[in-house]
């Protein structure tokens, strides 16, 4: 565990806490993509199957459980909470799951380090995470006056990815046999997806304006 990895994990955790607090305080999920949240649920379920087979550390187990529980809480609120679900932008959140899930599944079957159910699902989760934010970014682009908390949520998620890249560089330099090309490439793709958003987020922050993304 290095400082970049810890900072990355904490940023990831903070992003989810920001989203939970926002939804709980405002009783609204306006601007939040249910599709992205459900894709993250698939990512976490497929990746964390090793909770049953492999103990890494208490930290690792607890964080996995928190990510699973918090994501399912968000989905539950957006689908079933009697006040929050009314505020969901159903008509705007139209990204098709299959455009992301199917290519990632095929890629995971072809490009993996071991052709076993666990490893293919794990690899699938790596590919899917790289693109799971896309429905959220599309929804943000369609939303005028993105509220601060939704903007901060996406900014924190992007920061978490950038910190993971620093973590990989650090591990590559300090651990002799540490290589994971599929994860690195997916992670770099995932971070690139955020660059456009980062540009407008920082611009709006510097100009003290409300964030809006050009269509």
């Amino acid at each position: 565990m290095n400082i970049f990895r810890l900072a990355g994990d904490m940023t990831h955790l903070l992003s989810i806490i920001v989203l939970l607090l926002k939804m709980n305080a405002t009783r609204s999920c306006r601007g939040v993509s249910l599709k992205t949240q459900e894709l993250y649920a698939v990512v976490f379920v497929c990746r964390y199957l090793d909770l049953f087979t492999n103990f890494i550390s208490l930290y690792n187990t607890v964080m996995k459980l928190i990510f699973l529980a918090s994501t399912f809480t968000i989905i539950y609120w957006m689908r079933f909470h009697k006040v929050i679900r009314v505020t969901y932008d159903r008509e705007q959140d139209t990204f098709r799951y299959q455009f992301l899930v199917l290519p990632c599944l095929v890629l995971a079957m072809v490009l993996n380090s071991e052709f076993t159910v666990m490893e293919v699902l794990w690899t699938f989760s790596i590919y899917l995470e790289a693109v799971a934010i896309l429905p959220q970014l599309v929804l943000l682009q369609r939303t005028n006056n993105i509220d601060n908390l939704t903007g901060n949520y996406v900014f924190l998620l992007g920061s978490y990815r950038a910190l993971y890249i620093l973590n990989w560089i650090y591990r590559f330099m300090t651990e002799p046999n540490y290589r994971q090309y599929l994860v690195w490439i997916s992670g770099i793709v995932q971070t690139i997806v955020y660059i456009d958003f980062f540009y407008y987020y920082i611009k709006s922050w510097r100009n003290n304006e409300k964030l809006s993304l050009p269509a």
């Binding site: 492999n54 690792n60 790596i126 540490y178």
Partner: peptide, 10 residues
């Protein structure tokens, strides 16, 4: 304690 692969990451 930690294995040298990405599987120890979250």
């Amino acid at each position: 304690e930690e294995e040298e692969s990405g599987h120890d990451e979250l």
